[in-house]
Design a protein around this nucleic acid. Structure first.
Lengths: 221, 221
DNA sequence: CCGGGACATGAACGATCGTTTAAAACGATC
DNA sequence: GATCGTTTTAAACGATCGTTCATGTCCCGG
């Protein structure tokens, strides 16, 4: 019995995304994936060669999807147009980016994209360069472009360190969600979490940036 | 042949810490642990009951160790004395805490403490409440005490969100180390990374806090 | 000197792992 | 409708998994 062309492959990929995201590479068996995809165990090896190749295919497909999803949700401004924005527009753009990433990462249910990304950070595989080139580097470059327009006095290396303080909190609330919820006694982040926390993180970052800029200008001790 | 009492148990625990930190629970076999500990396979089950119990024991032992290690490295001030510090002392205390955590987490070689902690965040086990109670909650409470002295105008909930922006970057550079190194083309973080980045993160946070405080006071749009 | 509790050991258990095999079933082409 | 490459399938492979068991060795109080 043969289905629509490539359907088995697609079903396997979908199931693999979900299970690898939830339980990790070693915590997921090929049989589990085949069972959830409702296909034969051997299909996985037929279509992907090996469990590891399937995993890499999952990562590749997701890293591309993350940028696409992010682009859907946030204000779109090509890098070359950033130079023409005024301060208010730059701030709005920054908040839009932070909030979009929060929405994508800490939405309900917990994002598979985010979990796969976090797993790849913690246990890098052969797909790490793909994650870096397809997702991290573009994100960081775009953010740097905005920041250097906002605060032209900050040199490049310092700007990159400032980015730690801007991306970090988003990663943190994503990764530590179970712990933070346990600590607060809540069952789940409130519905407006991304909106509210995104605004706060943006303001915090603007203040941080301003202070770093003042120091760079030698205005502050 | 019997060794010093409890030595086998201790050797197993040491080996387990290293392997679980490096490869995770599912990525590590009991035989690997026994092999590295240079003891018989059955010893693991004899001393700990099961692989899972051994894992929980590893986590418990490490969470206690993390706070102890942190306390060694940073300025020690009991919570009740924070109320008596002036601004410069508070700032120095804050930087001391951030730098100490950076040193512990991103030192060479990569900290087993940090990796186990990150794993527990990503895939919580029965030990998560221990991690929260033994490490996260005390750390956060102490930080909150310092922050609320620095900026008394910020309400409690907002202060907790500001903590996202202060702890987050430390977690981020720990978790994303391989990716960040790959992106920068470097082999390893520079030797003064904790010192330099810690200073920057502290200044960034001070600026962020100040801006949130201004907004709380209604001074800023 | 003896008995018993604590620990170490090699071997084996059944279960599950990723992968392979050979044959069956299919759709497209002539 | 026969043929061919593609896909699906059930079954089995050897390896490795966590765990158990029976036996052996050790130390210690009597």
């Amino acid at each position: 019995m043969s289905r629509v062309p490539q359907e088995t492959r697609a079903r396997l990929l979908d199931a693999a995304v979900e299970l690898f995201a939830e339980q990790g590479f070693h915590g997921t068996s090929v049989r589990d994936i085949a069972l959830r995809a409702d296909v034969n165990v051997a299909s996985a090896n037929y279509h992907f060669g090996s469990k590891e190749d399937l995993y890499l295919e999952v990562l590749r497909s997701q890293f591309a999807a993350i940028r696409a999803r992010l682009s859907e949700r946030r204000a779109k401004v090509p890098v070359e147009e950033i130079a023409g924005l005024d301060r208010d527009e730059l701030v709005a753009l920054l908040r839009s980016r932070i909030t979009a990433m929060l929405e994508l990462f800490v939405g309900h249910p917990p994002s598979r994209h985010a979990r796969l990304m976090l797993r790849e950070m913690l246990d890098p595989s052969a797909a790490l360069p793909v994650a870096v080139d397809e997702f991290m580097r573009p994100e960081i470059e775009q953010s740097k472009a905005i920041l250097s327009r906002l605060e032209p006095d900050i040199d490049d290396e310092t700007l990159e360190q400032c980015l730690f303080s801007m991306m970090g909190p988003v990663i943190y609330v994503t990764l530590a969600r179970p712990a933070l919820l346990l600590m607060s006694g809540r069952e789940e982040y409130p519905a407006d979490f991304a909106e509210q926390v995104g605004r706060r993180m943006t303001e915090f970052s603007l203040g941080g940036l301003a202070r770093i800029a003042r120091i760079a200008r030698g205005e502050d001790a």
